[in-house]
Amino acid sequence: MAKVTFSSAGDTLIAYLSGEIDHHSAQYLRDEIDSLLQSRMPQTLVLDFSAVSFMDSSGVGLILGRARRMQAGEGRVVVQQPPAQIQKMLELAHVAYV
């Protein structure tokens, strides 16, 4: 089961993801994040992975989908604090993180 909570500062929205991200849970996370993107219209979306315990390539799809959405409004996505196993997945997909 995956969850997401949000905080915002200025024109930055931070999504704190937790739990297991797979094709099933990514659908829920996508809906939650896109709903906030639509209402807040931030310039930067930060996806925080520090509490994610598992992620398959559905998580990469979640990131790329949000990045396309943000870029359409000249915004950007920052991926932060992925645990080691998730770093491996991001590196395979050539997704940068901090």
């Binding site: 990514a26 996508r30 398959d56 390539s57 559905s58 990469v60 799809g61 979640l62 790329l64 989908g65 396309r68 997945m89 395979l92 997909a93």
Partner: peptide
């Protein structure tokens, strides 16, 4: 293509 990374077999 907006939501699937196409990485399943590569992973």
């Amino acid at each position: 293509p907006d939501e699937r990374a196409g990485l399943g077999f590569a992973v």
